[in-house]
Design a protein around this nucleic acid. Structure first.
Lengths: 337, 337
DNA sequence: GGTTGGCACTCGAAATGGGCGAGTGCCAGT
DNA sequence: ACTGGCACTCGCCCATTTCGAGTGCCAACC
């Protein structure tokens, strides 16, 4: 592929992203130093169209990039511009003063939404390295207890379960047993201990113990997959009022489903930014939108996802830069404390 | 006010709500048994317009209700139709099997959104009657601890705080002291105890104790006001694509701010359904939308809000019926345990 | 006095049609 | 390989027209 053709594609993408309008050969040579005539550019565009990187909405209109065009742009043409000083400072001020985990995640999602002017998604950190700090059993009624699991990452999980006719003493015994066995263990170790614990239970503890152990196991294993996801910057969607059907509606629908969001963020497994453009998305309803996501790491063994969703026509270079910066900053923040 | 004029207003509201189009005198007599001629209806409409209940988008168009018209409709004309059997059954099946408090609230908001086809908002229950079950302190780092407060309503609050150079023993002492003092107290009692506790602290406990007490007090007092709010059915907004600027955007913006949502739900303080139409709303951006909200009671002393937001042109009778039914059902469900 | 049919009038929505111009593809010339 | 020129296409914009739903008013009616 010709150097100049790539240059032309790059120009088309940037112009189209900023103007929202199909871009023609004339406008292109005017606004970029291509040092060739419109006619030459037209020839290049014809080739680019033939190879599927750009397309015409209708005859006698300019060209717009296809998904394949955006893909090439992102992979080979985009130069990620570093964040401005102002943006870096914004990150600092925005995140400083965050107290607990909830607070950190909430601030992060707002920050990301503001930087990118898109809809932001942040997953709560999942940590394999996190160890269990405490298990608490609280009686709600005479038949129901609330099981609470606290990990060193600051995460608090809770789950109610039926425990017919239990006494406070039962709970105390169970609590002590569980804490003795689990505190200090990471989730996989804890799961093992629980399995053996279930076998060792004294007959009189079987009834309640088995139920509690089952729920705890579920909480531990679901830990990795089903962490909470928070969403922010939804009003940014209003910028795309024209693409109501293709962008606003599908994104709103996706945001409603935690499962979908987790699946989306699951696309990003490495520390570097992952981009899914149009039909590359795992959900067909989102075929007119792009996902820019990254994993973030609090330590070597723990990671989670974060990212933004927007129309395929988005400013990839700066979005990618923002997502990357926020992911790194969040990782550092979590690692420190 | 004439009986027939009221009948005409009622007909205009219902027709406009279902058709989304200004309704004229001809269409009105065709679709309702008014037993008068269009000309008579026109005279009535002229009067209704003069008094501000209806208005014309432009000359030679039909009439649409004003906020004042909707208000009169809701107050005096609407007959709340009871839910269908199917809807009642939907509530049952939807809510059955809910485990913990989170689960209940999540299901409620989905249910409400589905029944009304609007955006639903549900506030977590606030209970004055709820008593403290347990206070837990978990060391996160050597300088930071996580304070966890569990109440009998099943609510779990957490808050991280700095506690420089504490030991596990410090935490254990504090934990015991706090639990001894607070367990079984409701929030106002607990606040009192905390105040006196702060004075009674042994000098060596002052340093850490004071910080923890301060945070606990904050958690207790914020309890009433700043409970979490969850939102659902946002994709229902896409039904109002035409009213993008007046409905979709403002609602999305409102949903982003917990404070706004709490304020909105705060409008409903009684167990019966409250309706705020257009400019009656506490926020001017929401002047083209209506709020239908109700408080729900788990017991005599505890209540919280729930409701839906949509365009002023909404089906008030069935929306009110749904909100009322869900509020009552939720109240009963919580009261049971 | 309230109700009704008739009628002239208004004005937005939808349909029609011409002109404009951005943009294209192609070709011959450099 | 690039460029200037040129004929062509076709969506967009604008002015104009038509159409009809709906109105207000008035005189007649019960």
């Amino acid at each position: 592929m010709d150097d100049r053709k790539l240059e032309v594609l790059k120009a088309i993408v940037t112009d189209y992203v900023s103007s929202r309008e199909p871009v023609g050969s004339k406008a292109l040579v005017d606004r970029h130093q291509l040092n060739v005539s419109p006619a030459t550019v037209r020839n290049d565009m014809a080739v680019l169209e033939e190879e599927g990187y750009i397309t015409q909405p209708h005859t006698s209109a300019g060209r717009i990039p296809t998904d394949k065009g955006y893909r090439l742009f992102v992979d080979r043409l985009a130069t990620i511009k570093p964040l401005s000083l102002g943006e870096r400072r914004a990150i600092q001020t925005f995140m400083s003063g965050a107290a607990d985990l909830d607070d950190i995640v909430t601030r992060t999602v707002r920050l990301l939404a503001q930087l990118t002017q898109q809809v932001a998604i942040v997953q709560y950190p999942v940590s394999n390295a996190a160890v269990i700090r405490h298990v608490e059993l609280v009686g709600l009624t005479s038949d129901k207890v609330l099981l609470i699991l606290i990990t060193s990452s600051g995460r608090v999980q809770q789950h109610a379960l039926d425990l017919p006719t239990h006494t406070e003493d039962d709970l105390a015994t169970l609590r002590n047993t569980l804490n003795a066995a689990l505190v200090g263990q990471n989730s996989s170790q804890a799961a093992q201990r629980l399995h053996s614990l279930a076998l060792d239970l004294r007959p009189e503890d079987r009834l309640h113990g088995a139920a509690v152990v089952a729920v705890l196991l579920e909480m531990l294993t679901s830990d990795a997959a089903a962490t909470r996801v928070v969403v922010g910057g939804v009003p940014n969607l209003t910028r795309f009022g024209e693409e109501f059907e293709t962008t606003v509606r599908p994104v709103l629908e996706a945001l409603e489903e935690q499962v979908v969001l987790l699946r989306l963020l699951g696309e990003a497994t490495t520390g570097d930014v992952t981009v899914r453009i149009g039909q590359e998305n795992p959900y067909s309803q989102l075929s007119s939108t792009s996902l820019v996501a990254s994993a973030y790491h609090a330590d070597a063994e723990s990671w989670s996802g974060l990212g933004v969703v927007g129309p395929t026509r988005m400013d990839y270079p700066s979005t990618i830069a923002s997502v990357r910066a926020v992911a790194r900053y969040l990782g550092r923040l979590l690692a420190e404390g």
